[in-house]
C-alpha cells in the first residue's frame, strides 16, 4: 500500500500578516476634450515633412529648367500655361475639350468595369485553384505564363476580337489585373486552417455555404492583397491602352498633348494620374481593412 493517510503536521499555512491598508489619493486625471495645440502639432508633424520635400523638389526643378535652352518647362511655366487645367478640372467645352477631372472619371469608369470583372472572375478562379489539386495542376502553368505578358501586348488581339476601342481597353484592364487576384486568392484558400475546414465538415456545410461563410472571410486578407496589386496594375494599363486606342480618357489626353507639343499639360495630367492612382490604392486598402477587421487576429 503506497497510499498513506494524509496527516502531516509539518505542512501548515499561516495567515498572511495583516496590515491596515492605506488609501492613497490620486489627483484626478485632467480630461481635455479638445486641445487645439495638440491637434495643430499633430497635423504639422504629418503634413510638414511632405510639404517641405515638395517645395524643395519644385525649387530644384525650377532652377534646373529655367535656362532658355532647357528642353522641359519649369514649374512656373506649367502654372502659367496650364492654369486652366489646374484651376478648372470640370469645364466642358464640347466633345474633345473637357476638364481633366472628366477625363479621369472616364478612365476610372473603364477601370471600374474591367477591374470589377477581374475581381469577380479572379476570386472564383482563385478559389477553384486553391481548393482543387487537379485544377491547380492544370491551370497554374497557364496562369504563370499568361501573367507575364505585358498589358499592351494584349491590345492588338483584343482590338481584333472586339472591333471597338472601348471594350478592348476594358479587356486589357481585365487581363492585366486578374492574375494577382487569382494567385493571391488561391494562396489564401490553400492557407485556410484545417480547423476551420473541420468545423465546416462537422456542420455539414455544403460547397456554397463553405465558400461564402468560411472560404471568402478566411482568405479575405489574401484576396485584398491581390485586389490592391490588381487595381494598381489596371491603372497602369488604362493610361497605356488609352494612348493607343484614343477616345476621351486621360491616357489619350497625354498622347494628344504630346502631338501638339503642350508639355505643361502633360505634366498636369501626370499629377492627376498619380493622385488618382494613390487614391485608388488607398480606397482598396481601406475597404480591405474594414472587411477583414478581426480576421487576422488569432
Amino acid at each position: 500500500m503506497s497510499i498513506q493517510a494524509i496527516e502531516d503536521t509539518k505542512v501548515k499555512a499561516f495567515p498572511a500578516p495583516s496590515e491596515p491598508s492605506k488609501v492613497i489619493a490620486f489627483a484626478p486625471k485632467a480630461r481635455r476634450r479638445f486641445d487645439p495645440l495638440a491637434i495643430v502639432s499633430k497635423l504639422a508633424s504629418t503634413l510638414l515633412p511632405p510639404a517641405v520635400v515638395i517645395v524643395l523638389l519644385l525649387v530644384v526643378w525650377q532652377v534646373a529648367c529655367s535656362s532658355p535652352t532647357a528642353s522641359l518647362p519649369p514649374p512656373s511655366q506649367v502654372w502659367n500655361e496650364a492654369y486652366d487645367l489646374i484651376a478648372h478640372p470640370f469645364f466642358d467645352n464640347g466633345p474633345q475639350d473637357i476638364g481633366l477631372a472628366w477625363r479621369v472619371l472616364i478612365s476610372l469608369q473603364r477601370v471600374a468595369i474591367g477591374f470589377g470583372l477581374a475581381a469577380i472572375v479572379g476570386v472564383a478562379l482563385g478559389a477553384l485553384v486553391g481548393q482543387s489539386v487537379w485544377a491547380m495542376r492544370g491551370l497554374d502553368p497557364v496562369f504563370q505564363i499568361l501573367r507575364t505578358v505585358p498589358p499592351l501586348a494584349w491590345l492588338p488581339l483584343s482590338l481584333a476580337a472586339f472591333r471597338d476601342s472601348s471594350p478592348s481597353a476594358i479587356f486589357v484592364i481585365f487581363i492585366t489585373s486578374i492574375w494577382p487576384v487569382i494567385i493571391n486568392t488561391a494562396v489564401g484558400v490553400r492557407n485556410i486552417p484545417e480547423d476551420y475546414r473541420n468545423v465546416a465538415r462537422i456542420l455539414r456545410l455544403n460547397q456554397i455555404e463553405f465558400f461564402i461563410k468560411i472560404m471568402v472571410p478566411a482568405a479575405a486578407p489574401y484576396i485584398f492583397t491581390g485586389l490592391r496589386i490588381g487595381i494598381g496594375l489596371s491603372w497602369l494599363a488604362i493610361v497605356a491602352a488609352e494612348m493607343l486606342t484614343g477616345g476621351v480618357g486621360i491616357g489619350f489626353f497625354i498622347w494628344d498633348a504630346w502631338n501638339s507639343s503642350r508639355l505643361p499639360d502633360i505634366i498636369v495630367a501626370l499629377a492627376y494620374i498619380g493622385v488618382t492612382g494613390f487614391c485608388l490604392d488607398r480606397l482598396v486598402a481601406a475597404v480591405g481593412a474594414f472587411v477583414t477587421r478581426g480576421t487576422t487576429a488569432k
Binding site: 476551420y196 468545423v199 465538415r201 462537422i202 456542420l203 455539414r204 468560411i214 478566411a218 479575405a220
Partner: peptide, 19 residues
C-alpha cells in the same frame, strides 16, 4: 464514417471563426 453535428467536437485551440 463521415463527420456530422451529432458528434460535435470541441477542439483544443477552440477553432472559433475570428471574423
Amino acid at each position: 464514417d463521415s463527420p456530422g453535428p451529432e458528434r460535435a467536437v470541441v477542439f483544443q485551440n477552440h477553432s472559433l471563426l475570428p471574423w
